[in-house]
Amino acid sequence: MDLKDLYRDVILDHNKNPRNFGKLEPCDTSADGHNPLCGDRLTLTLRLEGDTVSDVRFEGKGCAISTASASLMTEAIKGLDERAITALSDVVHRTLTSSTEAAVPEGLGKLAALSGVREYPARVKCASLCWHTLAAALAHRGGSAAVSTE
């Protein structure tokens, strides 16, 4: 296992220069995510047009995997409606938890850079925190929600 399979250039880049970093004010919905085991924290703010995410930002502190995953996610979901987001989220989760021999599912685009995480089961929660937070934000639309990996 080469370290570069986990820390691909895309991930290092998004960790160093996170996209869509910050807070949308006002926003239509938001959620806080927390991974108490490692102390990662993340706040997502979203603007919606009907069912579609028109804008999204995140802020927080975490490891390279969680920061890059959140940054990549914000890029991927802009312009998607809730159904498309759920479908994409399913594919991401399957990728993160699939066996290391299985082929990486199609249709992930840049998110495929996260597939190396499955070699490191202890790190899956780092990569999935943002997706759990997103699900909480969409489920509690118009308010604010909090989600924890534990």
Binding site: M1, L3, C38, G62, A122
Partner: peptide, 28 residues
């Protein structure tokens, strides 16, 4: 380098260290 990334990188080099809050969150 976040401590968790550090823990993973050290692991790939065969080095077993603890990365985390060490059950002492007030210290962190």
């Amino acid at each position: 380098v976040h401590p968790h990334d550090l823990g993973t990188i050290l692991d790939t080099e065969g080095v077993a260290v603890r990365a985390g809050h060490h059950c002492a969150m007030p210290v962190m």
